[in-house]
Each structure stands twice: as C-alpha cells, then as structure tokens.
Design a protein around this nucleic acid. Structure first.
Lengths: 129, 129
DNA sequence: ACTGTTGTACGAATGTCTTCGTAAACAAAT
DNA sequence: ATTTGTTTACGAAGACATTCGTACAACAGT
C-alpha cells in the first residue's frame, strides 16, 4: 500500500482543498492567513512542493494555477487514524471513539447517526458468527 | 493552555511508557527495535531530548536511569484528536468516530461500552435543554 | 508604452528531527 | 589491575520542513 505522509502544513492545505474543491494559491492563502501568519510565497512554495510530491494536481492552463487535492480525504483519514490508534491509543479504536465523543460535543443528529452505525456493525458481527 | 507537540518518534516512546510504566532506555529500545530499526544510542538521544522538553521525567539515582512519561496519555490524546478532527475531518467528530468504527473492528464488549457512552451523552444533552 | 498589481519560479537560510560515532564513567568478572 | 560489557553524554552530520527574498512574466488600466 502506498504510504501517504503529508506534513502538518500540507494537511492544513489539503483540508481546505477537500472542503472548497479546486482553489488558487491566493484563495488558500487567504484562508490560511486567518489562523496563521505566513507570507504568500510561503504558501505558494508549499503547494509547489505538494505538487512535486503529487499530493495535489494543478491546472496551469490559465496564468493563475488552480490546484486540486490528489489524494482522497477518506484514505488519508483512515491512514492517519490507524496510526494514531496504534501509537497513542494503545491499539483500541473504541478508546479513541469515546475520547472523541467526550469532548467534542456533537449534535443530536450526529449522535443518532453514530447509533445507527453501531447497530449496523453489531448486526454484522452477529451474522458472521 | 500548554501546547504539547511530541514528534512521531517521541509518541512511539510515550506510548510504550504509558503502557509499561517506568522504564529504562534499554527496555524501551528492545521494544522499539521489534518494529523499527535504529541503534541504541538513537533511542537514548531521543529520550534525553524528551527529558529536556519535559515530556518525560527521569530518576538518575542509580547508574541506569529510569524514565517515566511526564505528560498524561489523556491530555495528549485529546490534544492530538482535536487537531485531527479540525484539520482532517473538517471539524466533525462524528465523522471521525464512524471512520474509526468502520475499519478497526472492535469487540462486542467495546461496542457495548460505546453505546452506553452514547446514551449518557444524549441524556446529558436532554437535561441541559 | 508605462506603471502598478498579481502571479510563478527558484534558491537559500533557518529550524527541527533523526541518526549515529566516539568518549568517558562505571561495574562485574577474571 | 585489566578486560569486557553496559551505560550516559555530547557533538555533528544528514534529512526534511518551513520561511521568505528576489527575479521575472503576464496582465490591466492609464
């Protein structure tokens, strides 16, 4: 399996790309600079490097290049989660789940969805027995 | 709030310390070398640096020093989770929860615990209304 | 055509992590 | 006492990440 290892800054940018879809450096930078403080060329350079690493694809047909994420949010999430469960939560996924539910308050809807998910998983386990 | 930022390697060591309790460099190294491949002095150096950063405390009363984790597993978990939810999961904790439950198969017991947890949270929300 | 603005490319400085070689302290065994 | 093995301390090299200055190209408005 191909190992994906985006750095901290790269993840921030990917996060924005996943949320917004195709974006220019300027757009990314404007969002980034709301929470951190870095020059425009810094963001540009980062995205150029991400392009080299093929974390993003870019359309250079117009003067202002347009970037899109080249790795899926799902796969990246799974990979990072797995590593985190392993090193930080001693291998217990449910430990992580409870910790996550504990502090980040979720809406009633979301909790309901999770509950349904749980039921589905339990049913599946029963069927496999 | 004090920001904790252990690196990848530091997290591996912390993970072992959390699981085993107080340990010597030798003990840590033996465990580490099962999964990765690094010299003894590398592990030693890492732990010395972690000591400088006050990620671990050490008892130097005997020749062979004994290290213990100086930051709690709970707090560290929470901090890393929060950041991850933020950057990788677009702020949705339940998104993370479902992803985690989906791939890491948990035991029936664990699922049951999570369900209880859910119920408790929902009840709490109701009471706060 | 000129000027100002916005963009990309590139290289270099700086910072941080990781790795390991070497030296010195110490203890146990011979 | 000398050797052998285990340990800590330290420094430095190599890799990687982050930051930004500078140069140059493209374009818009005058």
């Amino acid at each position: 399996m191909k190992q994906i290892r985006p750095t901290e800054s790269e993840l921030e940018i990917l996060g924005i790309l996943w949320e917004r879809g195709p974006s220019t450096v300027r757009e990314i930078h404007d969002i980034l600079s709301q929470t951190k403080d870095a020059g425009y060329t810094t963001t540009l350079k980062l995205m150029q490097i991400m392009h080299e690493k093929e974390l993003v694809a870019r359309d250079t047909s117009s003067k202002t290049h347009v970037y899109t994420a080249a790795i899926s949010q799902q796969k990246t999430q799974q990979q990072l989660l797995d590593k985190m469960i392993d090193t930080v939560f001693g291998g217990s996924a449910s430990q992580l789940v409870m910790q996550a539910l504990g502090h980040h308050q979720s809406s009633e809807e979301e909790l309901q969805k999770i509950r349904q998910y749980l039921t589905a998983i339990e049913k599946q386990q029963k069927d496999n027995r």
